[in-house]
Design a protein around this nucleic acid. Structure first.
Lengths: 192, 192
DNA sequence: TCCATATGTGCAGTATAGTGCTCATTCTGC
DNA sequence: GCAGAATGAGCACTATACTGCACATATGGA
C-alpha cells in the first residue's frame, strides 16, 4: 500500500453500512443528533458514516448498532428487518473472482432458524472453495443454467440445469463449473 | 463517553473477528507475515487484531477478508455457513391456474430446520391465496422478473424485479401480480 | 547446542479516525 | 417571507489506528 486513498467512499460495503444505518435511524424516527446522543458517536461522524465518506472502526460501528437495537453483523448484510411485513433491498455481492464469477446474498432471516437466499454465477472453469460450517447446517441448490459440480468429503455431486441439489455442510466443499457455459444457480443455506 | 477504555479487548465481537481471522489464516497455512503481504496490513497490526487487542477500521478488516478470500460480514458472524454430501431431486408442480401460473417445489430439507425452495410464475392479474403456516414460519422472496405484491394481515408489500422481500407466513397471505408482465420469483419457506 | 522460523510486544513516529466548533442549505410549518 | 429544525460540510484540534524497527520467546530440525 503506497498511496492510501481516503476521504471518499473507498469500498462499496462502507456505503452499504452507511445506508443501513441511515435507514434504521429513519425507521426509528430519530434525527442524527438523537442517534448521536444515544450512541455516543458525534453527529459530525455519523453524517459522514451515513454518506459513506468515513472509515469507522469496529467499536464505532458497534456503538451505533447497539443504539439502533441491532447488531454489528446485520448492518453489514443487506437484510431488512420489519417484523410482520417484509421490505425490499438490493443484493450484496459477497464474493467475486477475476473471471467474473460472483455470489450475491439476496436476503436472509434475522434469527433462528437462520436461512439465507443466494444467487451465484460461475464462469466456465471457475471454482469456489468454501470452509466448513456449524454442525447441522444444510444447503439447497437449484441450477437455472449450465451445470454445477459440488465436491464434498470425496463425494461428487453434479447438478444440471433444472435440477436441484442438497448437501450437508459440516465439512469442506467446493463449487466447480466444469461445463462450457456459465452456471447460474440459487442457493439456500439453512442453519439451526 | 468520559473514560474511553482502550488497549485491551473492549467488545466481545472484536475477539470473535480476531479468532475468525486467525482460524482462516491457519487453514490456509499462512504465516502472519504472509497474510500481511497479501492484505497490505502490517504484521504488527495483524497480531493485535488476531488477539483481539486492536480496534481496526472497516477498510482494514475488509483488506484482510479479501486476502483470505472471505467477506467482511462472515468474519463478524460467529457461525458462517456451508459444506457436505447431498442428493438431487426433481421439481414438483404443486399448483397451477387457468391463466398458466404455476408453483413448483424444487427441493427441501428432510428435517428441522425445515426449508423449502420454490419457483413461482404468476400471469398478469393472477392471484394466489395461501393458508397460514405453522407459527414461526417465515418466507423469503426474490423477484427475477415483473413485480410481486404480497398482502398479509392488512399490510401490502410490493417487491420489484431484483428486489427481495420477507414475510411471516403464520397468517393469511396472498400473492398478486398487478403488473402488465409475468412475475417470476424464488420463494424460500423456513420453519422451526 | 546452534540456527532458522514464527509469533508476541515495547516504542516512537505518522496517518487518520473522531470531535466540536462554525456556517450554509434545505425543508418544514406558521 | 420568516423562524426553527435538520442535515451537509469546512476547519482546527485531539485521540488513536497503523506502521516499522527492535528485541524477546518459543518451537523445530540438523
Amino acid at each position: 500500500m503506497s498511496g492510501r486513498e481516503r476521504g471518499a467512499a473507498s469500498a462499496g460495503f462502507i456505503a452499504t453500512v452507511g445506508r443501513q444505518i441511515r435507514q434504521r435511524r429513519q425507521e426509528q424516527g430519530w434525527t442524527v443528533q438523537e442517534l448521536s446522543d444515544r450512541s455516543g458517536v458525534s453527529r459530525r461522524m455519523l453524517t459522514q458514516i451515513e454518506l459513506g465518506q468515513a472509515n469507522p472502526s469496529l467499536v464505532t460501528v458497534d456503538r451505533i448498532a447497539h443504539a439502533l437495537d441491532s447488531d454489528f453483523a446485520s448492518l453489514a448484510l443487506p437484510s431488512p428487518i420489519p417484523a410482520a411485513a417484509g421490505s425490499s433491498r438490493e443484493a450484496l455481492r459477497v464474493w467475486s473472482s477475476a473471471g467474473g464469477s460472483e455470489a450475491a446474498l439476496l436476503t436472509a432471516t434475522d434469527h433462528v432458524p437462520r436461512a439465507e437466499l443466494w444467487h451465484w454465477r460461475l464462469a466456465p472453469g471457475d471454482t469456489y472453495q468454501a470452509e466448513p460450517d456449524a454442525s447441522g447446517t444444510e444447503e439447497l441448490h437449484y441450477v437455472h443454467a449450465g451445470e454445477l459440480t459440488i465436491t464434498t468429503g470425496g463425494a461428487i455431486l453434479r447438478v444440471r440445469a433444472g435440477e436441484a441439489g442438497r448437501i450437508r455442510s459440516d465439512q469442506h466443499y467446493a463449487y466447480h463449473n466444469d461445463g462450457p457455459s456459465w452456471t447460474e444457480f440459487t442457493r439456500v443455506v439453512v442453519g439451526a
